[in-house]
Design a protein around this nucleic acid. Structure first.
Lengths: 110, 110
DNA sequence: GGCTTATATATAAGAATCTTACATGTAAGG
DNA sequence: CCTTACATGTAAGATTCTTATATATAAGCC
């Protein structure tokens, strides 16, 4: 698994990316991210929930409480237009970072 | 330039990478990193110096004071064997992160 | 001589993000 | 009844980043 020090800052991109495919609640986001990255990226829930809160404050995502027929409450998040607009330049920044580190350290591309 | 939030954690890799080519002092490291990444990665010196100190505490680099003939003091850092050993798995972690984010968000490779 | 820019290192205060540990509660299966 | 999976959160602490401030030498210019 990818070490703790490296992951910093990936949360925003990861969350916005999984939400791009459709609304999700936090617990499910964590599972999707872990599954889609084959276990390489794993967000602890204690890191995820505060992050979702902060991103909602910034207006990139919007959460709504839902109670399923079974009675369990979930907070379902979806991208706001601002969040969708944020995604494109954010991806571009990551691409730049990849390119910069590649030039610097010869990190191979998977 | 790459935004502040994204850069977190890149310092270790960047520093170890530029030191792999030979001993350097802090100020010059900052210039090399900026130049070699065409300005994409830019470490402020206030972030660099404490980082160098921490990496020295961990035994990855070793600094030695040098006084040039002009009388200016520099702290010249070089990789320790431990630092050299650290570089390879660190690169591997970054590669994994790149791959994981690529799968997750379809970030194109530069 | 005096001014500015580049070189060179460092600390302080504060913000952001991550970690582990703690806390709560429902649902499903054995 | 007990355990595992689901689902959300808070608290304390560590790490790393930011901007701002401080010091000091060297080189070039007027």
């Amino acid at each position: 698994m990818i070490g703790p020090g490296i992951k910093r800052g990936t949360a925003e991109l990861a969350i916005l990316s999984v939400l791009e495919e459709g609304p999700l609640h936090g617990y499910e986001m964590a599972r999707r991210i872990e599954k889609q990255t084959k276990g390489a990226l794993r967000f602890t829930l204690a890191a995820l929930y505060p992050m979702l809160y902060r991103m909602e404050q910034r207006g990139w995502i919007r959460g709504a409480w839902e109670t399923s027929q079974s009675g369990r409450r979930k907070r379902c998040y979806r991208l706001t237009p601002a969040g969708r607009k944020k995604l494109s330049p954010l991806r571009k920044e990551w691409e730049e970072l990849f390119g910069a580190l590649k030039r610097l350290t010869k990190v191979a591309h998977a």
